[in-house]
């Protein structure tokens, strides 16, 4: 039962990533692209956690945590760059 559930969840998250990629390509505003990238990072974390559950491995959580931090910092850096033309003032 749990194998089937994890496969369904993997399909859902992969579809969500495709939706995000579509929005990333289409735009139209710059804000949409930043949202799409931010959501892609969150979906990638979900994918990593599901893969960790399927592989029954504890080693994926460091990757997920690092990706969460890098995703947040990159979103903020992108926004800061658009707003101020500079990241560290």
């Amino acid at each position: 039962m749990i194998t089937l559930t994890l496969q369904i969840a993997l399909g859902c998250v992969a579809l969500a990533l495709l939706f995000n990629g579509w929005r990333l390509l289409k735009g139209p505003a710059l804000g949409d692209r930043i949202v799409a990238l931010d959501t892609m990072v969150i979906n990638a974390i979900a994918l990593i956690i599901l893969i960790g559950m399927i592989g029954e491995s504890d080693a994926y959580f460091e990757a997920a945590l690092l990706l969460a931090m890098v995703g947040f910092v990159s979103t903020i850096a992108y926004c800061k760059f658009i707003l101020r033309g500079d990241i560290v003032e």
Binding site: V13, F19, N20, T39, N43, A46
Partner: peptide
């Protein structure tokens, strides 16, 4: 969780 993730991304579209 998977349903919420999918719905959030569908909202983006």
């Amino acid at each position: 969780g998977a349903a919420f993730v999918l719905i959030g991304s569908w909202a983006l579209v």
